[in-house]
């Protein structure tokens, strides 16, 4: 067993376990911390796949910003224990789990049946150059999507500020 294989199994199990933790833990704050752990694991998986820059961005954006927001909001609410964690109904719950399990089995089975799509990749690009070509691609082929996302972010920023200001807040003027 080489280091790469060991790393994959380690990261995969950590990511998957903490992902399952998000769903199963009844305290939402532990859920959020589990999700943060998942994000870190996913970022490490990106790094093992050679996407170092994306791995860093994943960590900064998800683990460093989005999840911190989630945790902060949960702590503001201060829900120590939830009264009803899971949805009601045994039969509907069983059906939901069965559907999820079936979907998991189908997807996993499909991937397991198909042979590998492409052979082993043998390109050891230097990380810095990968980021450079990533930038070139972003500003040429995908420039429309990039601009559209910029507009989307602007709209969202305005919308969220509007929502947050609707009542009270630290800067309220009334």
């Amino acid at each position: 067993m080489t280091a790469d294989i060991f790393l994959f199994w380690l990261l995969a199990s950590v990511t998957l376990l903490s992902g399952v933790g998000v769903v199963l833990v009844s305290n939402p704050i532990y859920s959020a911390l589990c999700l943060a752990m998942t994000m870190v694991g996913v970022s490490a998986i990106f790094a093992t796949l050679g996407a170092y820059f994306i791995a860093g961005v994943q960590m900064i954006v998800y683990a460093g910003a989005v999840m911190v927001l989630f945790v902060m909001v949960l702590m503001l609410f201060d829900l120590k224990t939830e009264i009803a964690t899971f949805s009601r109904g045994r039969i509907s719950g069983a059906i939901k789990i069965a559907i999820v399990g079936l979907l998991a089995g189908l997807i996993a089975g499909t991937f397991a049946m198909t042979t590998t799509i492409a052979g082993k990749p043998e390109t050891k690009e230097k990380a810095g150059h990968a980021a450079k070509s990533l930038g070139e691609l972003l500003f040429t082929k995908y420039v429309f999507g990039f601009e559209a996302l910029g507009v989307l972010l602007l709209i969202i920023a305005i919308g969220v500020v509007g929502l947050a200001r609707s009542k009270g807040g630290t800067h309220a003027k009334h």
């Binding site: 009803a84 964690t85 949805s87 789990i97 999820v100």
Partner: peptide, 23 residues
Amino acid sequence: LILSALLFVTGMAGVLLRRNIIV
């Protein structure tokens, strides 16, 4: 791909089963 599929269905189970909006 299988790892990704399993994570995806875990998230889906969360959406179906949990009741807290933030979760």
